[in-house]
Every structure is written in C-alpha cells, then in structure tokens.
Write a protein that binds this DNA or RNA. Structure first.
Lengths: 126, 126
DNA sequence: TAACTGTACTATTACAGATAGTACAGTTTA
DNA sequence: TAAACTGTACTATCTGTAATAGTACAGTTA
C-alpha cells in the first residue's frame, strides 16, 4: 500500500500523509475505511511507531482521518468536503506555478492543453 | 530588492535563489545585470556571507548567473533559454498539481479560467 | 483476561541550515 | 604599486527537525 523512499528529503511521516491523500483522490480509500494500525504499518514500512503516530496525528489535524484509541484510524465521513476545501486553498499555488511557466516562455495554450488531457482516476463505489 | 523572511521554513539561501528567478521573469533583472556583491547583500539582509555565497553558487550551478572572482555575479547572457528549459522541466509538477485539484472537485473550466486570466509582467527593454 | 488500538513522554542520534572567523585568488581603482 | 574591492574555500560551532529507542498509559475488542 504505502511506498516509502528513505532516500527522499521528504520526511517519512509526510510521505505517509501525502500518499494517504493520493489514495483518497484515487478512490482507493473511502469514507469510513480503516487505515493499517500503527504497529502494522511499523512492520510493513520498517520505521518507528512514533513516526507513524506522527503521520496519523497530522492526518487527523487536517480533518482527513479520525483516530480513536483502541479502535483505529479511519477516513473521515465528510472526506469529500475536506478534500475540496483543502484543494481550494491550493489554487493560489496553482496560479503561481502557472504564472511562472507562462512568464518563462510556455504558452497558455500548452498549459490549457495539459489540463484538458487530465483524466479522473476516481472510482465511485456508491 | 530582496525580502527575506527569517521565520519561513524555506532556507534563506533558497529564498534568494527563488527571488532572483522571480526578478528575472518580471523583467527587473536582465542579461548581464550585476547582482549586489556578497558583502553588500550581507549588510542589506543581515545574514552571514557564507549564506549569500551558497545562494550565488546555486544560481551559477543552475546556469542563471555567472560569477567571476574579483568582478561579481552577473545574470547569464542566455538567461531566456535557461529559464525556458527550466520551466519545461516543471511541467510534470504543473500537471500533478492540476490533477490533484481536479480530482479534489475543482473543475477543468475553473482551472482554465485561472490560466486565461494570467498577465505577463515581463518588461521588454530591447 | 488477553490482545489489540492510538497516544504521550524522555533521551538519543543524525543531518541540514546558518553562523563565525579566517584565508586566498583575482579585479578594479586611485 | 597599493588599497579596496570581488567571489570562493575551509573548519568549527550552534540550532532545529526528523527519526529512533524504549517505556508507559488509556481505551476497545474478542
């Protein structure tokens, strides 16, 4: 499930957060789904339980998961709204990057072409 | 000229690199232009000369500037090509971000609208 | 009760960014 | 020529963050 690159400059706990979000967008993880337990992931990835706990804490802080001691870590029921809201906060970042490429000599048409080529991998199960 | 945020998680030397690139795209810095000397910037920003030197070294490594001991640090003559090539390498990053926003519920139309609203700040002096 | 769940805490190691100080090689200018 | 400037190199040190190690605790499940 998770693919961790120990050589990456991106902290392990952050890689877990990022990949969890990617799995949600791809429809692999859905509302109410249970993530592997801290100790399961510890065994799978080969890192310290504290590192997993830190990732789960960050996911909960973002409203992406709900952790319950004794039960586990679950994808939030309102995950669709949470992801949409988070994405809207990233629009300025998108505009900044687009502006950078445009001012560097890449045409608007080429950028728009890239967007029109996007395909959703989201699988609707309901 | 340079605006450094000491509270930012982005290293100071990297902020200098990023802002230099921004000044070039905005037409504020042009081919052959001389950057402030290491010791001038040290005084302006209030950081260690080594930090400035590290930024200048990185700029030269990217082909953005040419440093000459005894003379100074200058914007490369072929800076337009260098910036275009660098931007092309960032297209996958652009596609990834666009895909993330799209899969999170932001429509293609909205993204395209943002691109069409872009205005170039580039000032042509020649 | 036993085995699981997430969480909290301290101590330690490792690494990157930044500072401090010094030194050197090359260029410009008076 | 000499002074003042330019970028660069080097070592030592400090700091903050990531990660590890080990232990412990509170709540849930079977």
């Amino acid at each position: 499930m998770f693919t961790i690159d120990m050589q990456s400059r991106t902290p392990v706990f952050e890689q877990i957060v990022i990949q969890t979000e990617e799995f949600i967008r791809a429809g692999i993880l859905n509302p109410g789904d249970k993530l592997p337990s801290v100790r399961e992931l510890t065994g799978m990835i080969g890192v310290n339980p504290n590192t997993i706990s830190k990732a789960y804490g960050e996911l909960e802080r973002r409203g992406i998961t709900v952790s319950v001691t004794g039960k586990g870590c679950f994808i939030a029921k309102n995950i669709t709204d949470v992801m949409k809201t988070a994405a809207e906060k990233k629009i300025p970042e998108f505009e900044k990057l687009a502006k950078e490429l445009f001012e560097s000599g890449i045409s608007k048409d080429e950028l728009i072409k890239k967007i029109n080529s996007l395909n959703s991998n989201n699988i609707q199960l309901s």
